[in-house]
């Protein structure tokens, strides 16, 4: 009886793993295509060999893709690194105040912030373009059509999610810690600097990874706010791939190149990446 039940359970577990493995194969099909195609020489571009491994492996497509994409990759670095650091600083201060140094109406402010997380950015895009164009004229500096304008947009629209992640993290800090610091005569900033910030490591990691990934992968803001000189990797990649003359091997190599930073982050720091994702969904 128990042997039968155990046997049945073994079969069930085996079946479950089998189905999961089938899905692993399905999920990896696009990755296989990306890799295999990117190493093919132009002579093997005919559809008959579409799913085959390359007959001769070559990095020629990678070389060309790198040449075309490099300026975009650099723009993406200039966008994502300062952008995620600024977002992190703002989110941390907001989260601290909204959880531990609250003022009347803090809950209302937080709720209003939250809605900012869900707005479709199309709804602010045209005024945003107009505002940045206006700033260009007013200051003589480059906001519209340049990386700094794009950083500004991402930092502002990143405030809600970054505030949410930090607030939910700081809520778990015992109030006594803050109270003890207050009793010692430390003010708000002093308490933040010497008590809260030193234990913020995990939340900082989550926010930087989340923001870096969203900024790096963003296409919508970039397409509306930047010009040829300031196109980040996503826009440049789309233009490379959209050109009829670009062979598949180069398109795929460019797609991989544009994804390397975020893929590396995912592989190395997947745990924090995951927490950022959950923060967007399960509050508290």
């Amino acid at each position: 009886m128990t042997a039968v039940a155990a046997g049945r359970r073994g079969v069930a577990t085996g079946a479950r793993i089998g189905v999961l493995l089938v899905f692993v194969v399905v999920f990896l099909v696009p990755i296989y295509v990306l890799l295999v195609t990117s190493f093919k020489p132009l002579t093997e571009a005919d559809p008959g060999q579409a799913w085959n491994l390359p007959g001769t492996w070559t990095v020629e497509a990678w070389r060309v893709a790198w040449e075309k994409l490099a300026p975009g990759l650099w723009n993406s670095v200039l966008l994502a690194v300062p952008g995620s650091l600024l977002s992190c600083a703002l989110g941390s201060m907001n989260g601290y105040v909204l959880s531990k140094w609250r003022f009347p109406g803090a809950d209302v402010i937080f709720t209003l912030f939250l809605f900012g997380m869900f707005i479709p950015y199309q709804g602010v895009m045209i005024p945003l373009v107009q505002l940045l164009v206006g700033l260009n004229e007013l200051t003589g500096l480059q906001f519209y059509g340049a990386v700094p304008g794009l950083v500004l947009a991402h930092v502002v629209y990143g405030i809600p999610i970054c505030t949410l992640i930090f607030r939910n993290y700081y809520v778990t800090i015992p109030g006594e810690l803050i109270e003890a610091s207050r009793v010692d005569g430390a003010g708000m900033l002093r308490t933040y600097w010497s008590v809260v910030l030193p234990i913020s490591g995990p939340a900082i990691a989550v926010v930087i990874i989340w923001q870096f990934t969203s900024l790096w992968n963003d296409f919508l803001f970039a397409v509306f706010l930047t010009g040829p000189q300031s196109w980040p990797a996503t826009v440049m990649l789309n233009n490379i791939a959209g050109a009829q003359a670009t062979p598949y091997s180069q398109q795929m190599a460019a797609a991989i190149l544009a994804s390397v930073p975020t893929m590396l982050i995912y592989v190395l720091l997947g745990r924090f990446f995951m927490r950022g994702l959950m923060a967007g969904a399960l509050k508290g």
Binding site: T13, L28, L237, A255
Partner: peptide, 29 residues
């Protein structure tokens, strides 16, 4: 189940890549 972490990592992996990059493969597929 055994290897749960690996399964999860593989299923979640597409989320780390931009729609623009994956769109290129899917247009081919």
């Amino acid at each position: 189940i055994r290897g749960e972490g690996t399964f999860r990592a593989i299923y979640l992996f597409p989320m780390a890549i931009s729609f623009v990059a994956t769109g290129i493969v899917w247009r081919w597929l």
